[in-house]
Nucleic acid binder design. Structure first.
Length: 307
DNA sequence: AACTTGTCCAACCGCAAGAAT
DNA sequence: TATTCTTGCGGTTGGACAAGT
């Protein structure tokens, strides 16, 4: 039997969400917590399908989401992570605490892709001595070049918040037309700032990485928990024991701990454990110049990206 | 001023994976 | 074990807006 549609097509509203709908959805999630999206439309009276509700929440209403331009550090981070992970936007976004996968994806498609295209076209084309590195080859290479990867990742993850654009509360000036709505959106975020419903223990990513998959109470909390939670994303595959293991292949097995009871307990208690990968990243305090590594990683990104 | 072209991004669609039954 | 349900993810689209002609 084929998979049924997520919702009835008739009587379902599509298109942009109105502030009123946002308020209804935000209020519902505030009261019941995210999850069981199937129940949201009938319970709230929203003429939206469950999928749309979930998407609206995760991409827009969820507290702590940063809107506006990407900083240089974020840009570099995306470049590096895209070279490492490919188009796994959710995984990449998990390293950018206040960005959604949709935002990262859009930013990649509208900015970085072109940037890379320009850079690659202006630089010397691949020659027989610099063959295009297939992803699998790159991953194998990375596996044997852990030190390079470690330093590059650490560098990429050292996002300087001071250099980042302001958060929602003091975000970049919005177009006048959107100002009113931005205000209501802001209000919703403020309203939800105290939201503290415990994240439901769900499968895979959610279980290992509550910060990335579920809202955390307040921006500060989300910020503090995000990095460790995000890093746990890399352990998801090993936890679930399935799926694409390319990330696992990139890293030594010792850096990919199982989701043991200790981790689970710490996560459940709201204390994000220092993940193995972060420990790994923090090991090297040599403080060597990172510019060359940046260039190497960018080179990898350029060669890895097929036009 | 009117039209065309380009950019940005919110939202939709379909697939896959995991959980539930 | 098989089937169904629910959610997450990545690719793509459509509309609003800006810039250019």
């Amino acid at each position: 039997m084929g998979r049924p549609p997520c919702c009835e097509k008739e009587g379902v509203k599509k298109g942009p969400w109105t502030p009123e709908e946002d308020m209804v959805l935000a209020s519902y999630v505030q009261e019941h917590g995210p999850g069981n999206w199937r129940a949201v439309p009938p319970r709230t009276g929203l003429l939206r399908c469950s999928k749309s509700c979930r998407l609206r929440w995760t991409n827009y209403l969820r507290p702590g989401i940063r809107r506006g331009g990407f900083s240089h550090h974020e840009e570099r981070l995306i470049l590096h992570l895209q070279a490492l992970l490919g188009n796994r936007w959710a995984a990449i976004a998990s390293y950018l605490p206040h960005r959604t996968d949709n935002d990262v994806k859009n930013f990649w498609n509208t900015h970085l892709k072109k940037k890379l295209a320009l850079t690659s076209s202006s630089s010397s084309p691949p020659t027989p001595t610099t063959p295009l590195v297939a992803r699998g080859q790159w991953e194998r290479k990375l596996q044997t070049d852990i030190d390079l990867a470690r330093r590059a990742l650490r560098d990429a993850l050292s996002v300087d918040d001071a250099a980042s654009p302001a958060m929602i509360s003091s975000g970049p000036p919005a177009p006048a037309a959107a100002a009113a709505y931005a205000l209501s959106e802001r209000n919703i975020s403020v309203m939800l700032s105290g939201w503290a419903a415990p994240p439901p223990a769900r499968k895979g990513l959610s279980a290992c990485n509550p910060a990335a998959a579920t809202p955390t109470p307040g921006g500060a909390a989300a910020e503090s928990a995000s990095t460790a939670g995000a890093s746990s994303e890399l352990t998801t595959d090993c936890c679930s024991g399935g799926g694409d293991s390319s990330v696992s292949n990139c890293l030594p097995s010792s850096m990919l701990p199982a989701c043991d009871d200790g981790d689970a307990t710490a996560t459940a208690a709201g204390v994000a454990p220092l993940s193995a990968i972060e420990s790994w990243l923090l090991l090297d305090d040599s403080g060597e110049p990172q510019l060359a590594l940046d260039e190497q990683l960018l080179d990898v990104a350029l060669r890895n990206y097929a036009f």
